[in-house]
Simulated assay, not measured.
Amino acid sequence: MNFARINGATIHYRHRPTAGRPTVVFANSLGTDMRIWNEVERRLADDCTFVAFDKRGHGLSELGGAPQTILTHAADLAGLLDHLGVKRAVICGLSIGGVIAQCLYKTRSDLIEGLILCDTAAKIGTAEMWNGRINAALSEGIASFADDVMQKWFTPDFHKNRGEELAGYKTMLTRQDPAGYAAACAAIRDADFTATTAAINVPTLCIVGDQDGSTPPELVGSLARSIPAARFEVIAGAGHIPCVEQPERLAGLIRGFLNDMRRERK
């Protein structure tokens, strides 16, 4: 395991260099840790250098001092890439990870070679929704709404046929630090990049599961339309976490995107 002190918090990360290959950085969704990318990484082992990390307050990363904003998370990611000596990377962000990626483009575009925005939006949810989630996490615990989250994360087919994995990912969610989870909810609540997506000027791929209950296809499609020349792909048979439910399809889209970027540079 690897840890680095970034902006006053210890951040847990994984770095798997592959000489001569582009760097892809995986940024997780709310309530998960970097293990959600394992199957995608395995399928792309010969294609990329990987960086994955637990955002602060999740997994094995410290929460640090409050308040936490999307700017805080973007600064953490920038600090981690600087720590690793990564000059340019494709940022693949899922849900809040995609919001962090949009913020990083606004604040440190020098680090970004391309964007893969999975199951995310320029603005996610309402203040009322996020305040309710924060209150529940801190007063009743994450387990009090975990079953509802699982319905949004995974398709009925996953619930029916992959029960052991479902139980594992529910455990991943409920074992997150409630304070860290609530802080991330507040960061999402207060983030809005609708006014800046039109300024994104790097190759961008927007991806969504066709049964995503958190950021539905129409919302992610709207994000794609707001970014000049962005591609939009829908993954069949996936909810909010396609890296778990359809890793082969997601890895194929990432590989194709990287290949297209390589051809365009020639």
Rank of each mutant, 00 (worst) to 15 (best):
G79L: 00
L94I: 13
H83F: 13
H73K: 05
G93N: 02
G57F: 09
L60G: 15
I100M: 07
L63N: 11
H58S: 08
H73W: 08
I100D: 02
A66I: 13
F53G: 01
A78Y: 06
T69W: 02
L80M: 12
G59N: 06
L81G: 11
C103W: 01
I96D: 05
T72G: 07
V86D: 00
I96K: 08
T72M: 06
V86N: 05
P67N: 10
G93V: 09
L77R: 04
L84G: 05
L60R: 15
A101L: 10
K55H: 15
A74I: 01
F53I: 07
I100A: 00
G65I: 14
D54V: 10
C92H: 04
Q68E: 08
H58E: 05
H73F: 15
I96M: 15
D82P: 06
S61G: 14
G57Q: 09
S61P: 12
G64L: 08
G97Y: 04
L84S: 06
K55G: 03
A101M: 06
Y105E: 05
G59Q: 02
G59Y: 11
L94C: 12
E62A: 15
G59D: 08
A78L: 06
G85Y: 12
C92Q: 00
G57A: 07
T72Y: 03
I100R: 01
L80Q: 12
A89M: 03
L77C: 04
S61T: 14
D82S: 14
F53V: 07
A89R: 02
G65A: 15
T69F: 01
L94G: 02
L60M: 14
A74K: 03
A52F: 01
S61Y: 11
G93S: 09
L63K: 02
D76A: 04
G97M: 03
D54Q: 02
C92A: 15
T69C: 03
C103S: 12
D76E: 10
E62W: 14
A101Y: 06
G65M: 14
G59R: 00
T69L: 00
V86T: 12
G93Y: 09
C103T: 11
V99Y: 03
D82C: 11
R88G: 13
T69Y: 02
G79K: 07
A52C: 14
F53Q: 09
V99L: 08
G93K: 00
L80G: 03
L80S: 02
G85F: 12
K55A: 04
G57C: 10
L94P: 05
A101T: 01
G79W: 10
A66G: 13
A52W: 08
K87G: 14
A89D: 04
V86P: 05
I91K: 03
G98N: 01
E62P: 08
L81R: 03
L63T: 13
F53N: 10
G57E: 00
Q68Y: 13
G79P: 02
A89I: 10
E62I: 15
H83I: 05
E62M: 11
A52V: 11
Y105Q: 01
E62N: 12
C92N: 12
L71K: 14
R88C: 11
V86C: 11
L77A: 02
D54H: 10
G64M: 04
R56D: 05
I96W: 02
